[in-house]
Simulated assay, not measured.
Amino acid sequence: MLFDLPDHATLYQALLDRDESYEGRAFVCVATTGVFCRLTCPARKPLAGNCSFRASIGECIEAGFRPCKRCHPLQPAAEADPIIAALLKALDERPERRWSEGDVARLGFDLSTVRRSFKRHFGMTFIEMARQRRLREGFETLVLGGSVIAAQQDAGFTSPSAFRAAFARLLGRAPGELTGRGLLLADWIATPIGDMIALSSASQLHLLEFVDRKALPTELARLQQLAKGEIGLGSYAPIEQIRAELGRFFAGESADFATPLALHGSAFTRAVWAELRQIPAGETRSYSELARRIGQPAAVRAVARANGANQLALIIPCHRVIGADGSLTGYGGGLWRKQKLLEIERRYVRAAPAA
């Protein structure tokens, strides 16, 4: 849906102009505040590099952004549907509550009607919206230096073990293992195809992965050992750089990544990754072709293992590797995401002559 919208420059100008023609059709997500707004929002305008644009409220919430308290982007849907208005009001009054379908039913609402209404307006159910809000609140408390207990309370978990388990499922590590400052800092980056976690030292980016990647806990454990346990929550300059570069990538402006990287792998693995970075956006290669290009045509399986060991998603574009027959092959971030990335990058190829 992202490329159904105008380009980033057009939408940013519409934000500056408070263009009412985009009302309900486009929303701006601000990386530095974690808030999403209407383009007509009266608040001070963020820098272009901190903005990404999405076509629906549901996309904004799924990416981890909260609705702005000045322009109230949920208000039109609430005004159009009394059920939505009542439940959003209840969520605002009790954001920490662990909402269930039983709670909704006890408020006198028909569950199927509520599900249809929220799906139609926001692309997610009320229960999903409430869960996203709770976990985001807990994450932000930790980033701002709050204790794990405070984060648990802000996220609305009565059980410390339940909060630790939910946090670990989301980020791969328990909250107590990712607090305070450290040699490596972890931060959350929202993208149109899912949230990512980035780990960086003061000078280099060590990891960029989608939070639902199964290998993420193992990768984090390896980096924690490298950093001698000193992993904290926060952001160093390389994380801010990759956040801006990802914004430009998904806005259709640039497929280039210049963030300095720390490459943890053998000489063979790094050679494969270097060859991956030579594949232009919009093109693909097979494993056997990669093996030939690094001068080891018999090492196809080793090339595939090196491809799977990549922990810098998008920057080292392992999603550009497909089967010899042209079929999509395994991708740690999910085949649907691989397909979406290839579709996005084909747009760059089509736009090249005009540029």
Score class of each variant (00 low, 15 high):
Asp17Ala: 15
Asp17Tyr: 15
Asp17Arg: 15
Arg18His: 10
Arg18Ala: 11
Asp19His: 15
Asp19Thr: 11
Glu20Thr: 13
Glu20Ser: 15
Glu20Phe: 13
Ser21Met: 12
Ser21Thr: 14
Tyr22Cys: 07
Tyr22Gly: 06
Gly24His: 02
Gly24Ile: 06
Cys29Ala: 12
Cys29Phe: 01
Val30His: 05
Ala31Leu: 07
Thr32Leu: 04
Thr33Arg: 05
Thr33Gln: 07
Gly34Cys: 09
Val35Arg: 11
Arg38Tyr: 02
Thr40Met: 09
Cys41Asp: 00
Cys41Thr: 01
Pro42Val: 04
Ala43Arg: 01
Ala43Lys: 02
Lys45Asn: 08
Pro46Met: 00
Pro46Cys: 02
Ala48Gln: 08
Ala48His: 13
Asn50Val: 02
Asn50Thr: 03
Asn50Ser: 12
Asn50Leu: 03
Cys51Gln: 00
Phe53Gln: 05
Phe53Ser: 11
Ala55Glu: 14
Ile57Lys: 00
Ile61Tyr: 02
Glu62Ser: 03
Glu62Ile: 02
Glu62Asp: 10
Gly64Gln: 11
Gly64Met: 12
Phe65Leu: 10
Phe65Gly: 10
Arg66Tyr: 10
Arg66Gln: 15
Lys69Ser: 14
Arg70Tyr: 14
Cys71Arg: 02
His72Leu: 13
His72Ala: 11
Pro73Glu: 00
Leu74Gly: 04
Gln75Arg: 07
Gln75Lys: 06
Pro76Trp: 01
Ala77Trp: 00
Ala78Phe: 06
Glu79Arg: 11
Asp81Leu: 03
Pro82Arg: 00
Pro82Ala: 03
Pro82Leu: 02
Ile84Met: 07
Ala85Thr: 09
Ala85Leu: 13
Ala85Gln: 13
Ala86Asn: 14
Leu87Gln: 09
Leu88Thr: 05
Lys89Gly: 14
Ala90Gly: 13
Asp92Cys: 07
Asp92Ala: 11
Glu93Thr: 11
Glu93Leu: 09
Arg94Asp: 15
Arg94Lys: 13
Arg94Thr: 12
Arg94Asn: 15
Pro95Asp: 12
Pro95Trp: 00
Glu96Asp: 14
Arg97Met: 14
Arg98Ser: 11
Trp99Ile: 09
Trp99Pro: 07
Ser100Asp: 06
Gly102Pro: 01
Arg106Thr: 08
Leu107Gln: 11
Leu107Cys: 11
Leu107Asn: 09
Gly108Arg: 04
Leu111Phe: 06
Ser112Cys: 05
Thr113Ala: 14
Val114Ile: 04
Arg115Glu: 08
Arg115Thr: 03
Arg116Gln: 12
Phe118Asn: 09
Phe118His: 04
Lys119Ala: 00
Arg120Ala: 15
Arg120Tyr: 01
His121Asn: 13
His121Pro: 08
Phe122Gln: 06
Phe122Glu: 08
Phe122Met: 10
Gly123Gln: 02
Met124Ser: 06
Thr125Gly: 14
Thr125Phe: 00
Phe126Cys: 05
Phe126Asp: 08
Glu128Ile: 00
Met129Gln: 05
Ala130Ser: 12
Ala130Gly: 11
Arg131Asp: 03
Arg131Pro: 01
Gln132Ile: 00
Leu135Lys: 07
Leu135Thr: 04
Leu135Ser: 05
Arg136Tyr: 07
Glu137His: 14
Glu137Pro: 13
Glu137Asn: 15
Glu137Trp: 03
Glu137Asp: 14
Glu140Gln: 09
Glu140Thr: 12
Val143Thr: 13
Val143Met: 12
Val143Trp: 06
Leu144Val: 10
